[in-house]
Design a protein around this nucleic acid. Structure first.
Lengths: 201, 201
DNA sequence: GTCTATACCATGATAGAC
DNA sequence: GTCTATCATGGTATAGAC
């Protein structure tokens, strides 16, 4: 009986450690972005040696993928947790609000769209691609429902709406507004939600 | 008489060459971003040796600053060229449209907000800071005018509106929509203008 | 077996000699 | 202006300690 127990315990520990690594990557990606994040920093923040990272994740790209997968899973879980009775538009708004709140606490990692080698690595990652497609589909359905409800302009293609929401969640304005320190986090979130769904006018 | 003429000619050439350098930087910043742009690439694109770059610009940061200064000057010129008879909101929309069109042709460089060493270098650059302040003021006035006209919600702080417009000009959605190839450049610009000023609803 | 220390190697920003 | 160092950084691989 000790055999299986020991193994299970070790596996448990492995998961805990990898979770700590992903935590660190998550924060660093949110604060510095992928290009400026270094493996040294990740290791230092976790409190392990740089080489140990490579025992858990084969590359920097894999680390980024792991962080994004966890974010996608959390997002999917949040989307699915929303009451079905809520109108589609309200759910979309709640999702963006949730993302912005996560971001306000420094927990929303973002990846650069221009880094081709990173993108190539991500596209090859089945788990990652699968989650992205799942989320796109889930949100796409909500957007189309909102269009039917007359809550979203029907002359906007669904993908335009989708990208607009995504873009707003990683909008650099947030950083600048936060840096200025004129408004509370709550206010900033409200402003972004307002400009996203209602526009400037 | 040959003395001054010769000098002037050399100066002329200098300017032409530096302009070519800034052209290359402009394109590379637009395509790859600051972190992934290398001095080797810049040199290769201009057709000179890497070390020669340093005869013209003291550092990579200075190159980025030069490109941004030229962009800011072009933007300021465009803003000032707009007819005073146009309503403020129409001018704001025209400015964003212009920026998006420039971007569509790969001519809109962007800088990462997270790179602290770059930001520090820019803040020390008086020419750059001056232009930024000029543009902020010019656009800020337009925004406040548009608010008085009832064309922009008066409950939105001016800086929120300003950042929202800036953010939309370097929105990653553009790249994704372009990559998908479903819409023409003109349509993409229209979609972004619409979602920015009128919102999704 | 898992972590650490260290070595390796490419890249990329600068600097100095022609 | 070019060519050729220099020097730091950072991603990756290996070898040995608990």
């Amino acid at each position: 009986m000790t055999g299986p127990q020991k193994l299970s315990f070790k596996q448990q520990q492995l998961i805990v450690r990898e979770d700590a690594i992903v935590d660190a990557v998550n924060g660093l990606l949110a604060r510095k972005g992928y290009d400026l994040m270094t493996m040294d920093e990740v290791a230092a923040e976790v409190g392990i040696a740089k080489a140990s990272l490579y025992k858990h994740f084969p590359s920097k790209e894999a680390l980024a993928a792991a962080a994004m997968i966890r974010l996608l899973e959390n997002t999917l879980a949040h989307v699915r947790s929303l009451a079905v009775s809520m109108p589609a538009i309200a759910r979309l708004r709640a999702i963006l609000q949730w993302a912005l709140e996560v971001r306000m606490q420094g927990g929303l990692p973002t990846l650069p769209a221009q880094n081709t080698s990173l993108r190539e690595a991500l596209v090859k990652n089945m788990r990652y691609v699968g989650k992205v497609l799942d989320l796109n589909e889930l949100l796409g359905d909500l957007i189309e429902q909102a269009k039917k409800d007359g809550a979203i302009r029907s002359d906007l293609p669904t993908e335009v709406v989708l990208f607009t929401i995504y873009a707003r969640s990683c909008d650099p304005s947030v950083d600048y507004l936060k840096m200025m320190g004129q408004h509370s986090d709550r206010q900033i979130v409200d402003f972004l939600l307002l400009t996203c769904f209602n526009g400037l006018g």
